[in-house]
Amino acid sequence: MERRAYAIQAEHLVKVYGQGRTRVEVLKGVNLAMRGGELWALMGPSGSGKTTLLTILGLVTEPTQGRLCIDGEDIYGGKRPDLARLRREKTGFVFQSPNLIPFLTAQENVLLPLSLIGARRQAARARVMQLLESLEVAERADLYPNQLSGGEKQRIAIARALANSPKLIMADEPTASLDAGRALGVMHLLRQAARKHDTAVLVVTHDHRLLGEVDHVTRIMDGRIVDVPDAPPTPDHRRLATASAGRPGGRPARS
């Protein structure tokens, strides 16, 4: 299979914490492959390794073993990677709480990732305003986070995650603190963003009501990806689903 076809491709990811008697194997050979434009849900019980997988895919934590390719670049294949640079250029994050920087305005919060990659000011500002307009919060651009509603903050957080045109967005329970209507709205925004910006979006969620918005549901259990027989079908689900338990981008999770 051609690796370039995937935004992210993980092969046999293993993560071990501690040594000897305190050794804990959190991830036990996770394989996963996502294409740009796909919205995936990652589900699993507490302690199953969701967050660890998220941090490995988000280039925050290094895996103990395995291979990780983002946008065709084998992250750990060569010399020691500059993870901070890769995070700046290739990933975006959305969290349960919006985690906006309180001393920056909405606009500056979105501008931040572009500033970190050294984007030209004029172009960066245009990009920020375009994102804020597309998320319908352009008129709130000059307000500080404490002047925004919860929903507006989450939109700003999504705009920030999209600002640097990442290949992959990690969303860690972005709807957990929202009511059903707002949660659906956020998922819809993420789905739109994935489509529009050709970005792979991996959402960790426990909320089954939102699964209708996702292209694919993958479940992690005891450090392994397992099939999800109860994931609700979506129009293009069949076409997109590529998760597997055994091989990268392998068999569809649902047929």
């Binding site: 901070a84 995070r87 250029e89 985690n99 920087i101 001393f103 931040l112 970190l116």
Partner: peptide
């Protein structure tokens, strides 16, 4: 600290 952690997560260099 939380903002600094966030900056690091967003890939801010140490010098920032």
């Amino acid at each position: 600290l939380r903002e600094i952690a966030l900056l690091k997560l967003l890939g801010a260099r140490g010098r920032v």
